[in-house]
Design a protein around this nucleic acid. Structure first.
Length: 953
RNA sequence: GCGGGGGUAGCAAAGCCUGGCCAACUGCGCUGGACUUAAGAUCCAGUCCCUUAGUGGGUUCAAGGGUUCAAAUCCCUUCCCCCGCACCA
């Protein structure tokens, strides 16, 4: 077995010595290709997930180099945001799992205290990441590597520029927004920080105000269906509850006790100024918005004081309200108990305000009937009925004539308009309620909080969205199916809270209390990556980055202003300023960026938005390549399952080439890929075999040329052609299949067919093509093979092979198929007929007229299947065989199964003759090949083109 | 709910856009054989059912219906599965 690590080290030294991956814009003769590798987050070492994603970038980088491009790889380390800080905090607290995680990465126990400092992470992991990348043989130019965060003043200046420009364009605004909030920790609680309630979000409600008669108090009732206010009939309160009276903006609101805190979170401070028992409200009247009548206040058992305001208004088209109402009406005892007016109670009836196609005027009753609900106790059924009704109302409902100015609107339209009207008139206030219970990791139940003074990037700006769509339309998206997803996301993105109160990152330039959030500071960093070589190593170029300012970036990215002026204000020599400008112009835009699909709905879409806002069209992104997530042996990768691997573990154990091959072979497209640990071993064996084969056979072999040699040549060229096509389509697994696995299979057959006597020229073509095509996948190994062939220079410098179309001959494939099927048939016959000691196989090639017959028949078939028979029978050439044709042809025509007549009679004979020895060896039989017409065997008639009759004796 | 992607032989996974060469690429697994002291590896053969001195027949590509001379592939309906829905990298 080859020592893949040894090979890797050897060739990495060579590459290093020749600096073959240094990317310089000076090389302008070549077209450029800019790969914006997605940068890893520096909260740990690279792992298998990174490896998979990076393999795509890596393959394309090397491939494009071999296609003659000047390739730049953007390479960096992501350090902004909260995860590093949080992890450092955990180290400080001595949390076991965090410390274990660090230990597993090979960090010495004594070193671990250093990780209590977030900045140490930002130093340590970039270094280790670079080490790993080089050990993997990634074709990167480390001079360009950069870190994000304020620890890197150049990057800091770059982000400052970005936000100043966005701000100037009016795309960053201050506002407020609802978040799920932990009242104990005082932080927003994202999905992953929850002990319970994943997926729950704040939902819009409105609380409508119902003025209590002869009072200055408002009864507040929440609703998600403001349209139903038009059909309001009365109010429900929970008879056993004592409500609070709170003062909000000098109004007095009646709400449940539980609601008081919510008001405080979402509105100005709520001051409790009194209490009122439900019994004091029941039987009174109140006046709500939109209608001109007053509502009676009634008791209901289903009202939960913890939901909404603890009071609801009733619209009797709702099955739950209706059921409750019917119970009350049928229960004089209750009416008496609560001292209600029986006349009023009996007068309550549904007001029909919405027409729904296929339904009548009493929607609530219809649903009760449909679900056969008899009592309010049947809660589940009631919920279902309500749900179904709401759905059909939402989809098909139209506001009826009695809805005044809202008449004729569809229900969603009416909801939107009414909501707006009510909020404007002050008859209702906006409220957010969680869609379900959320519990923070600290076990505190969460609430909705309105965050004030938050800065947003206004991705909801319609003009901006339109431009983003335009950009997407001009981009290549691989695989194409993801485009729809992007389209949706671009529309869906709302304003994005882009600042945090704490975390690593650049300070918001005009409001230094805020730190720019981590997804927002990495949307156009590919532009920085074109000139990071200079900015990260200014001393090497004789300048300093201390005084970088917005003017500098304006000049470099937009050519705005004067180089001399920029030079004066930044202290950077004019020549350097212009060099950077030129480099940017040369490299930008980026041509390739790949990532796992999780980044579609944020990072990649942000990237589009920010580019269209900050750069002219010619610098907009060119292509996104989306890959699935990686699984290990068909299981999700996770630390708890023990199938979590750092990249370092993998390449140390198996060598980088093997690890890369397995990654390339894991999958392509958007489906989750599978990293097959067994393939690692298979790959080692296969590569070792290849190396042995090449070392042994290259430059040797016979000189004379047989058909089988042409066949191999044809196959090689087909493989080149297929592999190239796959490479261009970014389908690297398929590319690997054609360039490597298929090639190997072909070789095996070839060696067998030539009985170990290959042709020298064919082998040369094979070895060279294979080695070159393997270079993007297993570059060290390819170098090793290249040198084993005695080649001077590096295979990394070779051109990707072009397929010689002339060498591709389908008829050669057909010939091989013929041989294969004959062998398999002979074997089958021997087996079935149980022939103990066969001595001879006679192969009877179908007569020439049959070849002619079927090639003509298939021509006729393409024209008109109905006329095949007639056409043939009219042809005098076939007259002599009329009877036989009548027997076989009609059936074949009707089933559309004609024998293939691609190989002529003469060719068929020739092919068989040439393979005679091969077949003989295969079975140890004497072989006789003859024209079926000249044979007296019964079987001879069965011979068809491409299917000789076989007689075993 | 909204949006997206899927359902193919024991498993995994191609094919579907551009219908026919599809009983359906390929890998794994399984069965038998060769090699070997043995195991592993490797190699050869087989692996939907029936039939058979091969090239024959039947039933398959979630389910049902349709278009067509012809459907895994096109159209319609139904069922089921996966992913995303944010302030987080």
């Amino acid at each position: 077995m080859l020592d893949f690590n040894k090979i890797a080290a050897k060739w990495q030294r060579e590459w290093e010595r020749e600096r073959i991956f240094q990317a310089d814009a000076g090389n302008r003769k070549k077209p450029k290709y800019y790969v914006a590798i997605v940068y890893p987050y520096m909260s740990g070492l690279l792992h298998l997930g990174h490896l998979f994603t990076y393999t795509f970038s890596e393959i394309v980088m090397r491939y494009k180099r071999m296609k003659g491009f000047n390739v730049l790889a953007k390479y960096g380390y992501h350090c902004t945001g909260t995860p590093i800080i949080a992890a450092a905090q955990r180290v400080r607290e001595g949390e076991k799992t965090q410390i274990e995680t660090l230990k597993k990465m090979g960090i010495d126990e004594r070193e671990i205290p250093k990780f209590a400092d977030p900045e140490y992470w930002c130093d340590y992991f970039p270094k280790e990441t670079l080490k790993d990348s080089k050990a993997m043989g990634f074709a990167i130019d480390e001079r360009y590597a950069f870190r994000t965060t304020h620890l890197n003043p150049s990057y800091d200046a770059f982000i400052t520029w970005q936000f100043n420009r966005l701000h100037e364009k009016g795309l960053v605004k201050k506002g407020k927004h609802p978040v799920v909030w932990c009242p104990k920790d005082n932080v927003p609680v994202g999905d992953h920080d929850r002990a319970d309630g994943e997926g729950e979000t704040p939902k819009d409600f409105i609380w409508a105000k119902f003025r209590l008669k002869d009072s200055d108090k408002y009864i507040m009732a929440g609703t998600t269906r403001p349209d139903a206010l038009l059909g309001q009939t009365h109010l429900w309160v929970n008879p056993d509850v004592t409500y609070s009276v709170v003062e909000v903006n000098s109004e007095k609101w009646v709400v449940s006790r539980e609601a008081v805190e919510k008001i405080g979170q979402q509105h100005s401070k709520a001051r409790v100024i009194g209490e009122v028992k439900a019994s004091e409200l029941i039987g009174k009247w109140a006046k709500g918005p939109l209608v001109d009548y007053e509502l009676y206040i009634a008791p209901a058992g289903f009202i939960e004081s913890g939901v909404g305001s603890g009071i609801v208004y009733s619209a009797l088209e709702d099955p739950i309200d209706l059921m409750e109402c019917q119970r009350l009406q049928a229960n004089p005892g209750m009416v008496k108990k609560y001292n209600l007016d029986p006349k009023v109670v009996q007068s309550l009836k549904p007001i029909s305000i919405i027409s729904v196609e296929g339904m009548g005027d009493n929607l609530g009753q219809e649903m009760l009937d449909k679900y056969r609900i008899k009592s309010p106790a049947e809660k589940e059924k009631l919920e279902e009925a309500k749900g179904e009704l709401n759905r059909s109302v939402y989809r098909k409902g139209i506001m009826k004539k009695n809805c005044g100015k809202y008449a004729g609107l569809s229900v969603p339209e009416a909801q939107a308009v009414i909501k707006k009207d009510l909020l404007k008139s002050g008859d209702a206030v906006m409220f957010h309620e969680l869609t379900g219970k959320v519990v923070c990791r600290c076990l505190t139940p969460c609430v909705v909080k309105i965050v004030e003074d938050q800065w947003f990037i206004e991705y909801n700006d319609p003009a901006w969205k339109e431009k983003a769509h335009e950009c997407l339309g001009s981009m290549q998206i691989y695989p194409e199916v993801v485009r729809k997803q992007f389209d949706y996301v671009l529309d869906w993105l709302d304003h994005w809270a882009c600042t945090r109160e704490y975390g690593l990152g650049t300070k918001l330039p005009w409001d230094q209390n805020w730190v720019i959030e981590s997804l927002s500071d990495s949307t156009i960093q590919m532009a920085y990556g074109t000139i990071s070589k200079y900015l990260e190593n200014p001393k090497d170029y004789g300048f300093s980055t201390e005084k970088l300012n917005d003017e500098f970036w304006d000049y470099v990215f937009h050519g705005k202003g004067e180089a001399s002026h920029v030079s004066k204000s930044t202290g950077i020599p004019i020549k350097m300023v212009d060099t950077m400008r030129a480099d940017f112009e040369y490299w930008y835009p980026f041509d390739f960026r790949n990532s796992a699909k999780d980044l579609i709905q944020n990072h990649l879409s942000f990237c589009i938005f920010n580019h269209v806002a900050l750069f002219p069209k010619k610098y907009w992104p060119k292509a996104f390549i989306i890959n699935g997530r990686i699984m290990v042996n068909n299981e999700k990768m996770s630390k708890s399952k023990g199938n979590f691997f750092t990249m370092r573990e993998l390449y140390t154990k198996h060598g980088p080439d093997i690890v890369r091959l397995a990654a390339a072979n894991a999958g392509e497209g958007i489906d989750d890929a599978n990293y097959d640990m067994e393939f690692l071993e298979t790959a080692k064996k296969k590569l070792t075999e290849v190396h042995e084969f090449i070392s042994e056979h290259y430059g040797k072999g016979r000189e004379n040329e047989l058909a089988i040699d042409k066949w191999l040549e044809s196959q090689i060229n087909q493989n080149i052609s297929n592999a190239t096509e796959c490479m261009e389509k970014m389908m690297f697994k398929s590319a690997l299949y054609h360039s490597f696995l298929e090639m190997q299979r072909n070789l095996k057959w070839y060696m067998k067919r030539t009985r170990g006597r290959p042709n020298k020229k064919a082998l040369k073509l094979y070895s060279e093509s294979l080695t070159i095509m393997l270079t993007p996948f297993a570059p060290h190994f390819a170098e090793e093979c290249w040198s084993a062939m005695g080649k001077k220079g590096l295979v990394s410098h070779e051109k990707w092979p072009g397929a010689n179309q002339k060498a591709i001959e389908i008829s050669l494939d057909k010939s091989e198929e013929l041989i294969r099927s004959i062998i398999s048939d002979i074997r089958e016959i021997i087996r079935l007929a149980n022939i103990e000691k066969p001595s001879k196989a006679i192969l009877l090639v179908s007569p020439e007229w049959k070849h002619e017959l079927f090639s003509k028949a298939s021509r006729l078939m393409d024209e008109n299947p109905d006329k095949v028979l007639k056409g043939i029978m009219q042809d005098t050439n076939f007259k002599a065989h009329g009877e036989e044709i009548q027997k076989i042809l009609p059936k074949m025509v009707s089933s559309r199964k004609l024998p293939q007549a691609e190989i002529s009679h003469a060719q068929e004979l020739k092919v068989l003759k040439e393979a005679e020895d091969f077949i003989k060896d295969e079975f140890g039989l004497a072989i006789e090949i003859m024209d079926a017409e000249k044979s007296s065997e019964q079987k001879a008639k069965q011979a068809m083109p491409g299917k000789p009759a076989i007689v075993i004796k």
